[in-house]
Amino acid sequence: MTSADHLHPNGTASGRSGETVPPLRKDAERNRERILAAARQAYAEAGLEVSMAEVARRAGVGIATLFRRFPTREDLIDAVFADRMDAYLAAVTTALADPDPWDGFTGYIEAICAMQAADRGVADLLTMTFPTAKALEAKRARAYDALMQLVDRAKAAGRLRPDFTSQDVVILLMANAGVVSATGQAAPDAWRRLVGYMLQAFAVHEPAGLPAAPTPTALYRAMLHLGRAGRADA
């Protein structure tokens, strides 16, 4: 600092022009928000396999800055998806409030599969576990407990097949994540067909009708997309 500069009592610096330089903590907070925004977009587009280096590049910060704010990948995922896990938990809470146990169950399945379709990061998040991301995993545990209540209600109502287990939800989410990834923008509603089939399989009495199948052209475009993605990874 030159003789023409001086410190204000609040710790900010004032230069020759009289401009006040914001304290470092504001710069750090801005960097944090830029990192979170970049990670959120990257994960939504490409899933959770996006590297920390790529997040730093998108955020316009150095990798050291990123690791100062988020020492591990799990720390970053925890921060990025805090609101998504709130929505995941809210979906099962809403389902439990439905007076019809089967409508509550099917509404929940459709809601979380729609979350996967809207965000590749969520598609991955719901089929992975992150033991060191304590806040995220705590919400996941609460959602699981509520899901089991939902399953028990639907079984007691005689609508959900008695051999259904919580593992079947995980299998469905894994399958749905694969469909969402494969079809992309070419057939963006293809996942609804899969979910419709699975809900019929879960039911004691099959509900009538299924969502419309993707058109042959849409599926062909999706297959072309997968082929190009495979060549790019080679």
Rank of each mutant, 00 (worst) to 15 (best):
Y108I: 00
I35S: 12
L136K: 10
K134I: 12
L76T: 10
A42I: 01
Q116N: 00
V61I: 09
N31Q: 15
D124Y: 01
M115R: 07
I63F: 11
R69Y: 12
T65Q: 06
V80H: 15
D78L: 12
L136M: 08
R32N: 00
F105H: 05
M115A: 04
A37Y: 12
G121P: 08
I35M: 12
L125M: 00
A133M: 01
R120M: 14
P99H: 03
S51K: 03
A97K: 07
L126C: 01
I112F: 10
A87F: 01
F130H: 00
I77G: 09
E49R: 04
F67R: 15
P101D: 11
D100C: 04
A118L: 03
Y43H: 10
W102S: 05
A123L: 02
M115I: 05
T106S: 09
R69N: 15
E54Q: 15
E137F: 05
A118I: 07
L136C: 01
G107P: 08
D27Q: 10
A117F: 12
A28F: 14
A39E: 15
R120D: 13
A143E: 01
G62P: 08
Q41K: 11
A53H: 10
A79T: 07
A138L: 03
T129H: 06
L36A: 09
E45L: 08
P101K: 07
A141T: 14
A138E: 12
Q116A: 01
Y108G: 02
K134P: 00
F130T: 01
D98A: 04
K134W: 08
S51I: 00
G62C: 00
A111E: 10
A37P: 04
P71I: 14
A95W: 02
I63P: 06
A82M: 03
E137T: 09
A56H: 05
A90E: 14
R73D: 13
Y108V: 00
A37T: 09
R84S: 15
E33F: 09
L89S: 06
D98N: 06
A117C: 04
I35T: 11
Y88S: 02
I112R: 03
R40I: 01
D100N: 09
I109F: 04
A39T: 08
L96S: 06
D27R: 15
F105G: 11
Y88V: 01
R140F: 09
L48A: 06
R32T: 14
N31G: 09
E137I: 03
L36Y: 13
Y144P: 00
R58Y: 04
L76Y: 06
G47N: 00
I112Q: 03
K134C: 09
L125F: 01
V122L: 00
L147Q: 15
P99Q: 02
D100I: 11
L125W: 01
D75I: 10
M85E: 13
D78Y: 08
V61T: 08
A118Y: 11
